[in-house]
Amino acid sequence: MGLFAKITRNELRLFLREPLVAFFSLAFPTILVVILGSIPEFREPSEALGGVTVISLYVGIALALGLAMLGLQFMPTVLASYRERGVLRRVAVTPVRPVTLLGAQLAATLVMALVSGILVLAVGKIAFDVNLPGQPVGFLIAYLLCGAGVFAVGLLVAALAPSGKAGNAIGTLLFFPSMFFAGLWTPREVLPAVLQRIGDFTPLGAGERALHDAAVGQWPALLPLAVLLAYVVVFGAAAARLFRWE
């Protein structure tokens, strides 16, 4: 096993040792789908939603939820606490560069998100007959781009937060409005037009829109993909510039 894989495995192991993190990132999105899927009306095609079922929408929203919890709350907390506790400094005096540890943490976060997402899709398909994405390649691109956008925002939080606790607090503050625009409380598709428009420019609103497009078999629209790419570039560059190693 290569060094990067070893460090990533170690980061994954540490993720799984936090019961709250493991539960909310791996199981909670699926539990949300199971709860909503148990409501009979949510399994019927809805005219207000253009003929799709509510539960099929929530499969996409649950994927965004997994990315948001991991990318906005858990990953920044871990990285900020690594700085606070001197873990980054400890690594800086070894042949491994601290940026490698940061990369491994991102990789571990992505693995957690993928496992959580596959679980959501599988349960949606098996338990509630939600079709798998009609445009799988577009769906994967939308998912990875949404993940990258959210992680870039999370990295900027980690770059600026002075401690693990502060990182978690800032992440949580961003989490709620982000998930509102992704449609966690009311699906984006039934939000008033002006809120939809605002949501199009948030990472999770754009992400959910792109995921929804691909789920129903279309290529994701250009706007959400461009918005996500902008988040990756702008927030990623800001995080790279501002990240403090100690």
Binding site: L3, K6, I7, N10, R13, L14, R17, E18, S81, Y82, R85, G86, V87, R89, R90, V93, T94, P95, V96
Partner: peptide
């Protein structure tokens, strides 16, 4: 050069074995 820092901590839930194994893979 091996360095022992005054405030160099490790993640709380890392075990002694994991830390030793991981750091030996660094070299």
């Amino acid at each position: 050069v091996g360095v022992q820092l005054q405030e160099g901590q490790l993640p709380e839930k890392t075990t002694v074995r994991e830390a030793l194994e991981l750091f030996s893979a660094f070299y």
